[in-house]
Write a protein that binds this DNA or RNA. Structure first.
Lengths: 256, 256
DNA sequence: TATCATTTGTTCGTATGTATC
DNA sequence: CGATACATACGAACAAATGAT
């Protein structure tokens, strides 16, 4: 109750609002530096901690980027530049899934893990043994970095000798192996976003409002049984995901 | 001190790290309250501003949520709960695009605008007159809120009298109108994420690391010409987008 | 090369306001 | 009402990065 009462907006928010407006109106153009903290203190008649809180707000909104010893600069674009096409195409028995765009930065890491949490739910396997293959992908054109994780449950690897021997097979080739083994496969992609953890921030070269775009891709058999899981993650600053699609057939009409 | 010596990383980050670890290890369970700022000051031997900076870090990572006068509580899940199925199905001349999940909260707002920025690029129309229809959708089951904007260029509306008269036609019905007018339509979805602006934060009821998941959906003709644009936005905390898909035909083989 | 002024980053201390119980 | 908790705001000092002298 009593939601009506609002206490006066804090001074640091008012300063942040003023600066945000001025940035929007082009008073401070993209790439240019804001007035220094000392100047802002004098201009608005507030203390340094207040100014710093205001600038921190702008950083969290993705409007500015601060550089130690230099100043706080208006960010050039809040729009991501790179687009990652998530569609999968097939020609004969060969699949393609953005192999042309990315190169592998380092050798991939293969570990043995157990499914848990979200991965267990998506794979419909609770605490099942699985190979996990970690890769760091790089788009040489834009410099964009994407982490990629493949989770292959042991029961799927057991079915396909090539997979058990080489879990680090590229996903598109895994699709071909699954098809060759008699599976008719489709995919279910889930896209989410969350703050980057400190280590993800560094590997993906993400700057301040470090937001991650995450795709969980489950490869499913024709009966809806999950086979493998892939997880893509990249900095939301720099990239977006693209899905071209058309209308599927509507399911049988139910009571409506 | 058992810990290594530590000049490079600031104290507030070290405190934040320790607390994050303890949260991950379940020392502070989801829903429970962290020690108060006074307690943390004593426990780590740091000042109050330092403790506050540490807790602010945890808020930005989405690990805790602070409540004035009560304390800072460990968030129950960082995983979004609701899933928005972005697939479109068709039965005869009727299309379906998550009409069953959402209800319209308020009457939609129709305005006349001009294409600019991202919208202009996606619609391939620079500074063209268009109808813009704004909606606020609600999933009664989960309480999830989604903003939806439809941009209909005048040249498309001119072609279809029903559209010009009622720009606020629901998207699925617009698809049917476009099909009836002889267009063979498909869609191109772009998914991005960014910090929420203050007003978006309030309309979408987003809490602290207010991250928005945004989908730009362009309806395109068979010749690739964009017809209309839809923009969905929702809190990344609460929802994710789902795309079921299968392999398309690979384009004609080029020099590889 | 070395020094210095500028600017942001970190940390402390302190005081007051306001929400919750 | 009082105790506790977080929120806001001020002042002060030093560290570290940067760029120019």
């Amino acid at each position: 109750m009593a939601d009506d009462i609002i206490r006066p907006t804090p001074m640091y928010r008012q300063v942040a609002e003023r600066l945000a407006d001025e940035i929007a109106q082009g008073v401070y153009a993209p790439g240019k530096v804001l007035p220094s903290e000392t100047q802002l203190m004098e201009r608005y008649g507030v203390s340094r901690p207040t100014v710093r809180a205001a600038v921190a707000e702008l950083r969290n909104l993705g409007l500015v980027e601060s550089q130690h010893g230099k100043g706080s600069f208006v960010r050039r674009r809040t729009e991501p530049t790179a687009t990652i096409d998530q569609s999968i195409t097939r020609a004969g028995r060969k699949y393609h899934a953005h192999e042309r765009q990315f190169t592998e930065v380092e050798d991939c890491q293969i570990t043995r893990t157990h499914t848990a949490g979200t991965e267990a739910v998506l794979l419909q396997r609770e605490d099942a043994a699985a190979f996990t293959v970690e890769r760091l992908l790089l788009d040489p054109g834009t410099g964009l970095r994407v982490t990629h994780r493949t989770v292959i449950p042991f029961d799927v690897a057991d079915e396909i000798p090539e997979l058990a021997e080489h879990p680090d097979t590229h996903p598109a080739d895994i699709y071909a192996l699954l098809t060759a083994a008699g599976h008719t496969i489709t995919w279910a992609d889930d896209i989410s976003a969350r703050p980057a953890k400190p280590d993800e921030r560094t590997t993906l070269r993400a700057t301040d409002p470090a937001i991650l775009l995450v795709v969980h891709r489950v490869t499913v058999d024709s009966n809806g049984h999950p086979l493998i899981l892939e997880v893509f993650a990249t900095s939301a600053d720099q990239a977006r995901f693209a899905y071209p699609h058309s209308a599927g057939r509507a399911p049988a009409r139910r009571s409506d």
